[in-house]
Design a protein around this nucleic acid. Structure first.
Length: 282
DNA sequence: GGAATTTGACCCAT
DNA sequence: ATGGGTCAAATTCC
């Protein structure tokens, strides 16, 4: 690891530690606000999960740095290559500057897609499916997307969009799979897709999308951090008290400053290191 | 029979 | 050399 990578690593750890402290403060505030008979609730549970995520991320980074310092020499010299040494998404050949990833409970997004490939990804539990817009030939639409189940949650799909729709489908606002409207849509590859269809649990519930979306920093239409990440349970508390709102904003920004295409299912230390090479660009 | 998916092969970036 | 992305023939479904 060179000095530049070490610097990024250290900065990432510092950001995580700050975020952890702020969530702890938020937890304390929330505790004061809730009635004694209801010491916990969805918001409190969510904070516990957020704290857990921070802890895991910190321990991962810590392991990474110590492994770097003390490479394992045992195991008879036979050591499996680290998984996913390359960045697995946003590395497209056609749309290097317009990719964004969303995490949804359904692959429906309002557009009509044609599946053109599927690959088992090295080190990944689930295969990745490749779709292109059904209007590629008719209207020359260059939009494509990659769909892969996340490793933590089989019912959640990481959907990476590459290229913009130039077809007439794109003119209908309800069809735009943006972070502003990711709950709409009924006619998709999933609807037409007979075999590459996810389990019914995912399909029958178009309203089950996660509120989480990661948009690459270089995206021309990148929204503000607060727009990017608004936890539903916390949003409900907005306006409850100024310090709480400020803290929520700070925590939100903390997450977003660490964004860097952070797909929990695909997070690998080496990915982080490589991010420092190409400046977080896709 | 047409349309859509599957899957192995090929190409390309790293 | 390796893994990811795309192509296209084969297969499946309606």
């Amino acid at each position: 690891m060179n000095w530049h990578e070490q610097g990024n690593m250290k900065a990432a750890m510092e950001e995580l530690i700050r975020g952890q402290e702020q969530v702890t403060r938020l937890q304390s505030m929330l505790k004061d606000m809730l009635p004694p008979e209801y010491p916990s609730g969805p918001a409190a549970d969510l904070l516990i999960e957020v704290l857990s995520s921070f802890s895991k991320a910190l321990s991962l980074l810590d392991l990474g740095s110590s492994a770097e310092a003390n490479p394992p020499s045992s195991n008879g010299g036979v050591r499996r290559k680290m998984q996913s040494p390359r960045r697995v998404s946003c590395r497209g050949r056609q749309h290097p500057n317009t990719c964004r990833t969303t995490f949804l409970k359904t692959i429906e997004d309002g557009f009509t897609w044609r599946k053109y490939g599927q690959k088992n990804i090295y080190g990944a539990k689930h295969p990745r499916s490749y779709y292109r817009c059904i209007h590629k030939h008719g209207q020359g639409c260059q939009a494509t997307r990659q769909v892969q189940r996340t490793e933590q949650d089989d019912s959640t799909f990481a959907i990476t969009y590459m290229g913009d729709h130039t077809c007439t489908d794109a003119t209908t606002p309800r069809d735009q799979p943006t972070h502003h409207d990711i709950t709409s849509g009924s006619n998709t590859a999933a609807a037409n897709d007979r075999r590459a269809t996810p389990p019914s649990s995912a399909l029958g519930n178009p309203k089950q999308e996660c509120e989480e979306e990661v948009i690459s920093n270089h995206s021309p239409s990148t929204p503000s951090s607060s727009q990017l990440l608004k936890l539903p349970a916390l949003s409900a508390l907005e306006g409850s008290s100024p310090p709480m709102a400020q803290l929520m904003e700070a925590v939100s920004e903390q997450y977003c400053s660490l964004e860097m295409e952070f797909d929990p299912s695909e997070f690998k230390l080496e990915d982080m290191f490589e991010l420092s090479h190409d400046g977080y660009n896709c």
